[in-house]
């Protein structure tokens, strides 16, 4: 491990220039602050990391600013979900929050940029808060990256399912509007949407969205103009 501070003593940032494994057998446990608002993922990560007796896992209090948690818990490493917005605080905690006596080191492994890219792509980053040679956080980061990726896949599948449902709902509403306003039968309404979509090179849900939006505009204008129209609209909404 080689930590190369900038030449100037006034400089507050240290940059880890290269990675080499620890060669001493330090017995003190490495204190890891795990800052992840996703409870399920944090739980899974804690379980994986707790299996290693040389690690102590710490968690910030709910609602606690990351900077405060770092100052209070004095961890060796902060493992943080990149989506946690106050991660920014770690970029310059020593100077900005002058209550922290330690330098912050953005953990960087320049020998393996592909891995850092992978970890960041998965949504995890690691900061080392010790000025002395830091512990080997690479396996920690690897475990975190794998878990983050797993959760990411699950989340994107959920999002896709939600989008599909929402689109189906829009198509149904558009069909209802066509059936009501144009006196179409249901299969004709669907065919109408499909023909429009094919003719304009768009997807059926997009065309349906347009129909629904057009309906909403008409209603809004109606509300402003005539009270009678508003009543009618309300009744129609109830009928849908």
């Amino acid at each position: 491990m080689h930590v190369a501070p900038h030449q100037n003593r006034h400089n507050s940032c240290y940059v880890l220039r290269e990675w080499c494994p620890l060669n001493d057998n330090r017995s003190a446990a490495v204190r890891i602050l795990l800052a992840d608002d996703d409870a399920a993922r944090a739980g899974a990560l804690t379980k994986v990391l707790s299996a290693d007796a040389s690690l102590t896992i710490l968690r910030p209090q709910p609602g606690e600013l990351l900077a405060d948690a770092v100052a209070a818990l004095a961890p060796d490493v902060v493992l943080v979900d990149m989506a946690r917005p106050d991660r920014d605080a770690l970029d310059g905690i020593r100077v900005v929050a002058s209550n922290s006596p330690r330098p912050i080191v953005l953990f960087v492994d320049q020998d393996d940029p592909a891995f850092m890219e992978e970890a960041i792509g998965a949504g995890v980053s690691s900061y080392n808060v010790l000025g002395v040679p830091p512990p080997d956080v690479k396996p920690i980061l690897r475990a975190a990256a794998a878990l983050f990726r797993h959760h990411q896949t699950a989340r994107s599948e959920l999002r896709q399912a939600e989008t599909r449902l929402r689109e189906q709902e829009t198509v149904n509403r558009a069909k209802a509007i066509l059936i009501r306003d144009r006196r179409m039968a249901e299969p004709d309404a669907y065919r109408w949407l499909r023909t429009r979509a094919m003719a304009s090179g768009r997807r059926i849900p997009d065309v349906a969205q347009e129909v629904v939006a057009g309906e909403r505009r008409t209603k809004d204008e109606g509300r402003v103009q005539t009270p009678e129209h508003t009543q009618e609209t309300t009744r129609e909404e109830g009928a849908q």
Binding site: M82, A83, R84, P85, D86, R87, D88, L90, D91, P113, M116, E117, I120, G121, S125
Partner: peptide, 15 residues
């Protein structure tokens, strides 16, 4: 992105 650190990290690592 949720934070400036994300922007800076992702630019640095080519994401």
């Amino acid at each position: 992105e949720p934070s400036w650190a994300n922007i800076a990290d992702k630019l640095t690592y080519g994401l």
